[in-house]
Write a protein that binds this DNA or RNA. Sequence first.
DNA 1: TCTATATATAGATGATCTTAAATACGTCTA
DNA 2: TAGACGTATTTAAGATCATCTATATATAGA
Lengths: 104, 104
Amino acid sequence: MSSDPVAFGKAIADETRQRIMRLLCCRELCVSDLVTELRDISQPTVSHHLQILKQAGLVDTRREGKQMYYTLRQEAIANCCRVIVREYAPDVDLVDAGASPQTT
Amino acid sequence: MSSDPVAFGKAIADETRQRIMRLLCCRELCVSDLVTELRDISQPTVSHHLQILKQAGLVDTRREGKQMYYTLRQEAIANCCRVIVREYAPDVDLVDAGASPQTT
DNA sequence: TCTATATATAGATGATCTTAAATACGTCTA
DNA sequence: TAGACGTATTTAAGATCATCTATATATAGA
């Protein structure tokens, strides 16, 4: 919920967590679904990363019987990005120049 | 450079680095300027963080005599945010409906 | 209640990160 | 060239993190 850029950075600063986020994007999955997809990561590790994402406010949870379903909080993610741009890229207009690859 | 969300996350996942980014936002500063402002951080630590930001493509450098001047690469930062939103918040329109009320 | 299943937590370990002190490097000026 | 100054790198210590195994908690069904 915080939209704190440091906390947001820490939350996304891990390859496994971003794999989880990618899997959760636009669909709801339970822990065992995620463990099945991330076949090289143990269940406790998946749960651990989910707790970190939850703590950062980037996922929502819903219990259904024995399973715990997770979804991405897209609006929260977008909001963190808005804060970052407002703080560190205030001169950039997000509307245009979206796809222009202006990088060294 | 890369616009890799994991690398971007690692780069911003530190309070000191974001303090540096805030100081560099919209103005050019050399290392000793930054050391003066961040009065609780040593010069080698500041230099170290600047290297991390540089490696992530978030700052540009310009040498002028003995000093090395740093600037924020706002476009690169905005681009990383665009990638993150595209990947993890595709249903959200970054432009409107932000934290600030946008009266149409 | 007991058992099975799904998820979370605890503890341990190795890797990575932050930091400062000491030192090296690069540039200017005399 | 020598010395001063600004910045970068090296080294090492302490902290944090990702990951596993083992175990605990929670829920459903018999």
